[in-house]
Computed example of a mutant assay.
Amino acid sequence: MAVSEQRKEKNGEVLIEFRASFFAMKRLTSFPWTVIENDELAEFILDLLKQTCLHPLCRRFPPSVRYRRLFLSELIKRQEAAACDPLDELYDALAEALGVEETPECYKSYFLPSGDAISLLENVALISEGTTGLVTWEAALYLTEWVLQNQQVFTGRSVLELGSGVGLTGIGICRSCSPNRFIFSDCHASVLQKLRENVQLNGLSEQTSPSVRVDELDWTTASDETIRDIGCDTVIAADVVYDPDVAGSLVKLLVKILNCSSAERKLEIFICSTVRNPETYDGFKRQLETAGISHRVMSEPVPNVFPYDRLAPIELIKLFRVQEG
């Protein structure tokens, strides 16, 4: 392969990485800036703008205003450091971003291997309105990556997601795995409102897709009748074991789900957690054991599909009744 063709191929790969990182609002310091050579910087910046701030997806589902400003300012700094000729499109894009008012909400988009994107309306702040459920957390990204690698686990199944948050994993399952039914659930009013918006903007409206539901589900008050009405044979949850009290409520709910499960189809439960506090996480596992629920760690490697940092350990476990394990 000629040198120019190799460089073109390399730049294409880098542009894809930049696009994924930009729409997921990954930290700018993690972008692969150093692979770009100065003699091709001006042309690359124009191509990069077309894949980020000038991409049609950015017009419809833009990252936060502050993030776009920082991104464009970084591009200008690198262009000026390389003594490249000024690029009108770059300064026009920055002027446009400077003229937009900042809001407490933004969009993040995550590209599937197919090239399609899941776009989510999220809050800019990690904690807002008294909840952490208005942003996408690392365990949801990891679980979605595992889902994409194990689509057969969800095909034709009735799936209940506990603590759906803004909806990444559930939307990924609905878009990629052809479940028979999918029930998103949460208990916080603001989270449920944003969850419904995200389900709809990804083409999964409850009105157009009867197999998709968004339910309010309070773990502390859910009755056996409610659980039987849901009628799931697969249960998933991500980043829900962050507080001892919440973990205790989750274990009690899981016991009810297991007790109400149909004997016709074996119930499968998967819980994915970012282990930020080992003591809290170990306490959750002890409560499971006390409640007669065993677990198995799903230890197979999960390839990175989305741009995020796995700084803290992430663990996915499958749950069983003790006699089933």
Rank of each mutant, 00 (worst) to 15 (best):
L87Q: 02
F320Y: 14
E80I: 01
S114W: 10
S30F: 06
A83W: 08
C177D: 05
E122C: 13
V302Q: 04
S294T: 12
P104Q: 11
V147I: 14
E101T: 15
G115C: 11
L57W: 00
V35A: 11
F111A: 09
G325C: 15
Y107N: 08
D186I: 08
R60Q: 15
D224S: 13
N304M: 10
A140W: 05
E43R: 13
V240Y: 02
P301C: 05
I171C: 14
T290I: 11
E105T: 15
L70W: 01
T136R: 04
Y242V: 12
F22P: 01
L192D: 08
R78W: 06
C260P: 07
V302H: 03
L57I: 10
D224W: 03
P210S: 14
E315T: 15
K26L: 13
R27I: 00
A97N: 11
A95E: 15
A222P: 02
L254I: 09
W137Y: 10
Y107W: 13
C260A: 15
T155I: 10
T169F: 06
T52R: 05
R228Y: 04
A238K: 06
L316E: 04
F284W: 06
R175C: 00
H55W: 08
R296G: 05
D39G: 01
E289Q: 13
R66I: 14
